[in-house]
């Protein structure tokens, strides 16, 4: 064979082949390689500052499993940083129970403090019931409510930032979706990042790893368990974006990373201002949270009414 499948570093049988630079890595060296790429991304973007308390969204699914495993390695070199894992229980029958168990195993293994917050506690009901008559919108409504839940968790645990498990695939798909929708504000300002001085900043340490790398990582670490899939389908446009980018990546390796870097390049050149507000933020007339309009997204998706006073 003209390309024996051996680790470029130690010569043992390789588990993965990566490009840019072209290399083959055994299990041990792939784990190290993936962790180091994330550590580098964290440091390069100064995602975690001295003494930060970092809230880690831990759903128990594959992305957040990798996130907590990698961050708990990272803090071994940063004893000033404290991690707190939070699991949001959306109230999705026959799905969330198993993932919460997975999350509990992970915090036991990593020794990270763990909290659970439920939609019922925050919004008065389970996601299943909140979307009973509009299941097609479940995924986007859930996203809005989960974001608010994490903000609330950050407040409760006095966190300085919120780390989420968004991977390279998620990020590349979002860029394409923003383009296809003509949504320039979302392309140039990450609505999930928060605005300095207003919201707790969000960090996405795994955005340098593809979905495939993340699953490989947790498999090689022995933390892969096939879990039930969320019964609510992802938006149709995301499915399309996923297919298109998947095909392009196969033919032109590096496409995903190029898409995300292209977006990051644009963001560097665009003056910073909260989405569509020219820098102005209000407090929601119903719940009092910060919003760019009059009524916040959470109150809108929950159809909360303004009381006449």
């Amino acid at each position: 064979m003209n390309n024996p499948n051996l680790c470029s570093i130690c010569g043992k049988p390789a588990a993965v082949r990566l490009n840019n630079p072209e290399r083959r890595l055994c299990a041990e060296h792939f784990i190290k390689d993936a962790e180091e790429r994330v550590f580098k991304a964290i440091d390069a973007a100064e995602m975690i500052r001295e003494g930060d308390r970092v809230l880690v969204g831990l759903s128990g699914g594959k992305d957040s499993t990798a996130l907590i495993l990698i961050l708990s390695e990272y803090v071994k070199t940063r004893p000033d940083v404290k991690l707190i894992a939070v699991t949001i229980d959306e109230g999705i029958a026959e799905y969330r129970e198993d993932t919460i168990k997975a999350a509990e195993r992970l915090v036991e293994h990593t020794g990270v403090e763990h909290g659970i917050i439920s939609f019922t506690e925050l919004f008065g009901d389970t996601l299943d019931r909140l979307v009973a008559d509009r299941k097609n919108l479940a995924c986007s409504i859930c996203g809005v409510l989960r974001r608010r839940s994490l903000t609330e968790a950050a407040r409760r645990f006095d966190a300085d930032s919120i780390a989420t498990g968004h991977n390279l695939d998620d990020e590349a798909q979002s860029v394409l979706m923003n383009m296809l929708r003509g949504d320039k504000p979302s392309l140039i300002q990450d609505s999930s990042l928060g605005y300095t001085g207003y919201f707790v900043p969000r960090i996405k340490p795994l955005a340098v790893l593809s979905e495939k790398e993340i699953v490989t990582y947790i498999m090689l670490k022995g933390f892969y368990t096939p879990l039930p899939e969320c019964p609510y389908a992802v938006t149709a446009l995301r499915m399309e974006a996923r297919k298109i980018i998947g095909t392009l990546e196969e033919r032109y390796p590096g496409t995903k990373l190029n898409i995300v870097r292209f977006r990051d390049g644009i963001r560097k050149h665009v003056p910073y201002s909260p989405k569509g507000t020219k820098g102005k933020l209000n407090t929601c007339k119903i719940c009092g949270e910060l919003t760019s309009g009059e009524i916040c997204q959470v109150c809108r998706v929950l159809n909360r009414k303004q009381s006449d006073e």
Binding site: A14, A15, K212, V215
Partner: peptide, 20 residues
């Protein structure tokens, strides 16, 4: 099957998809 959407194991070990 799109190779990018799966992970493969040969005789129980994860391998790159250009292995024979």
């Amino acid at each position: 099957i799109n190779p990018a959407s799966v992970i493969v194991a040969k005789n129980g070990n994860i391998v790159p998809d250009d292995v024979i």
